[in-house]
Structure formats: C-alpha cells, structure tokens
Amino acid sequence: MISLDDVRKAAAVIAPHVVRTPLLPFGSGWLKPESLQPIGAFKLRGALNALARLENRSRGVVAYSSGNHAQAVAFAARLHGVPAAIVMPSNTPAVKIEATKALGAEVFIVGITERVERAQVLVAERGSALIPPFDHPDVIAGQGTIGLEILEDLPGVEAVVVPMSGGGLISGVATAVKALSPGTRVIGAEPALAADIAASLRAGSLVRWDPLQRAQTAADALRDEPSELTWSHISKLVDDVITVSEDEIFAAMSDLARRARLVAEPSGAVAVAAQSKLGGGVAIVSGGNVDPELLREVLANG
C-alpha cells in the first residue's frame, strides 16, 4: 500500500502542471471540481506522477483507457517529449477519442475486453513503458493529492465522497485523508449498474462482474474493476459505498450545470448524486468530458 509520504512527494512533482482545484459550496456540502483540470479530469495527476518517475521513457509510453486516462497520458507524454500509444475500447465516447488524438497520441480502438492485451502487445513490440490507469503505486499516489488539497482547505471535513471503478482515485484519496484526518469518512460512489466494489465490500472479498454488465452504465469512466492493489486500499480504508441509479446520475449532471455552472460527464456526477443521499461532505467531480449530445439531452430533460 502507498503512504502519506508517497502522496506528498507526488504533490511536489505534479504541482507545476495541474490546477489546484478549489472547494465550491454546493447545497449542504462542497464540490471538488477536478473537471477543471487541463484535460478535463483528475486522471492528469496520476499520469504526470507516474510518467515523471519512469527511469526509462526513451521508447515512449503505452496506456489503455476508456478516455480520461488516455488524455492524461497523452498530455504528460507531450509535456516530456515522448511518444504515446493509447488503446481505447470501442464504446469510448468519440469526444474522448478525438481529444486524445489532438494531444498527439497514437490511438488504437479495440473490443471492450481486449484493451489490456493489446496494450501488452504494444509494450512488447516497442519496448515502451506501460502506465496503467489505476493499478500502479505512482498513479495512486498522484490521485491522492486531491485528498491533501481537500484537507488543506477544509480540515476535519465530515466526509469525502469519491467515485469508484478501478479504484485508483479512492485508494489515493483515502490514504491521504485517513492519515491526516482519521475521523473523516471516505465514502465510495458507484453506479448501480457497475456496483462490483459495493458487492465486494459486502462479501469481504473481490467479486467480479461481467464487463458487458458493467458496460450498461452511462458512466463510461466507471466501467472498470479494482485490482488486487487497489482492493487492498479500499478494503482497509473505505467506510461505506453509496450506489446511484442512471436517473440519479443524469439529475446530478443537470444540477451541476444549472446550480454550480459546472459541466460534468456521467462519471463525474456520480459522487454528487451520492452526496445528495448522504446530505453533505465533499464530492469529487472527477471529470467533465461529456458527449455534447448527451449533455443536450440531459439538460433538455432535466
């Protein structure tokens, strides 16, 4: 497991390149709008830390991602002047694919269950370094810097609500929060259609859901499953999980746009939907890379 020291070191590494996002009042709680990062999502933190710590990146980097990690790695690779090859599943929103290409990355589109295998082939063929989306200590430590910032701005906050999928974000945030403020509750938020971590916590061990089942949620950035590394953090540090329906996710997107003037993708609104059930705390708005047509529909129906 990573430590608070790992998170603090990551904060120093990434500080010149990320936005220190503010806490914004929202209803009875607060928002941490990571949607305001240069690539529109929190993933930039972990990618920057991981790439900066690579001993050898001369042959470039490879990543697999449903979209936000793809953009984060492409951004970090461009910053360091190295090539990036990104494997993305075929159900990735077009807005995320085009944004990744615009950052200079080479993009490979594959079936939704094939991205890890294809990335491993590219690593073997090119001798590149792999930067996974969550299953890496340096990635987790980078995401944990969000927890540091929350507690700097709001010491002793009652709860921090974090969207969960692969678990890198909540692993890092929980590490920082529990080390600095043990009484603060760390609450995971999941779409009900991809609530495998909630099921795992109830069972006391990892429960695997079919990828096609998880793919039913509109929260495309939350269709992954935790690794053994992230599960080791989640099982020890997360206090509870709140699951939310698709309608609740869309309602949170509409509320964010109308009341907070923030654009959020479905995945970015999941913690806010959970926060409304909790009745307070800080909700992490993890990303804002929403398909424009989906956003139009949400606002029209909201």
Rank of each mutant, 00 (worst) to 15 (best):
Arg223Gly: 09
Arg126His: 15
Asp247Ala: 15
Ala194Lys: 05
Ala283Gln: 08
Asp240His: 15
Val73Tyr: 02
Lys9Cys: 14
Ile146Asp: 02
Gly279Thr: 11
Gly302Arg: 01
Ile2Arg: 05
Ala129Ile: 11
Ile131Ala: 08
Gly29Ser: 02
Val244Ile: 09
Leu4Tyr: 14
Val290Trp: 00
Leu31Gly: 07
Gly166Leu: 14
Ala218Arg: 07
Val116His: 03
Ala129Leu: 11
Leu237Ala: 14
Gln143Lys: 15
Arg258Pro: 02
Gly46Thr: 07
Ser28Tyr: 07
Leu180Cys: 12
Glu190Arg: 06
Ala15Trp: 02
Gly281Asn: 00
Val19Gly: 03
Arg118Ser: 06
Pro22Ser: 09
Leu295Lys: 06
Gly166Thr: 13
Leu36Phe: 12
Leu193Pro: 00
Leu54Lys: 05
Asn68Met: 09
Trp209Gly: 00
Arg202Glu: 14
Ala189Lys: 06
Leu44Asn: 06
Glu98Lys: 14
Asn56Gln: 04
Ser254Trp: 09
Gly40Ser: 04
Val95Gln: 04
Gln143Trp: 11
Pro25Tyr: 03
Ala84Tyr: 04
Ala105Gln: 00
Leu154Phe: 10
Pro155Arg: 13
Leu295Gln: 12
Ala15Pro: 00
Gly188His: 03
Leu48Arg: 13
Ala77Ser: 07
Leu4Gln: 14
Phe26Arg: 02
Ala218Asp: 06
Ala99Met: 07
His17Pro: 01
Val18His: 03
Leu154Asp: 08
Ser286Glu: 03
Leu154Ser: 07
Arg20Thr: 14
Asp196Ala: 05
Val13Asp: 13
Val13Pro: 03
Val110Gly: 01
Arg126Glu: 14
Ala70Thr: 07
Val270Ala: 05
Pro155Cys: 14
Asp239Gly: 09
Gly147Lys: 09
Leu23Lys: 02
Ser90Tyr: 00
Ala271Asp: 01
Pro191Glu: 12
Ala10Ser: 12
Met88Val: 12
Leu44Glu: 04
Arg185Tyr: 00
Leu31Thr: 08
Ser286Phe: 01
Ile249Gln: 10
Leu256Gly: 10
Thr243Gly: 11
Val244Met: 04
Ile109Val: 15
Pro182Lys: 11
Pro25His: 07
Leu151Trp: 11
Glu98Thr: 13
Arg202Pro: 01
Asp247His: 08
Gln120Pro: 01
Met253Pro: 10
Glu149Pro: 13
Val177Tyr: 04
Leu180Trp: 11
Gly288Arg: 05
Glu190Asp: 05
Leu206Asn: 03
Gly166Ser: 14
Ala192Gly: 10
His136Cys: 12
Met1Tyr: 13
Gly67Met: 08
Arg261Phe: 12
Leu237Lys: 15
Leu237Tyr: 12
Leu148Asp: 04
Ser58Cys: 00
Gly268His: 02
Ile86Gly: 02
Leu201Cys: 08
Val290Glu: 01
Ser35Ala: 15
Ala174Met: 03
Val116Met: 03
Ala264Pro: 09
Val298Asn: 06
Gly104Thr: 04
Arg118Tyr: 06
Ala257Trp: 12
Ala274Lys: 01
Asn289Gly: 10
Ala77Ile: 06
Gly168Gln: 13
Ala283His: 03
Leu130Lys: 07
Glu158Val: 11
Ala274Tyr: 00
Gly280Glu: 06
Ala194Tyr: 06
Ser286His: 04
Phe108Asp: 00
Ala274Gln: 01
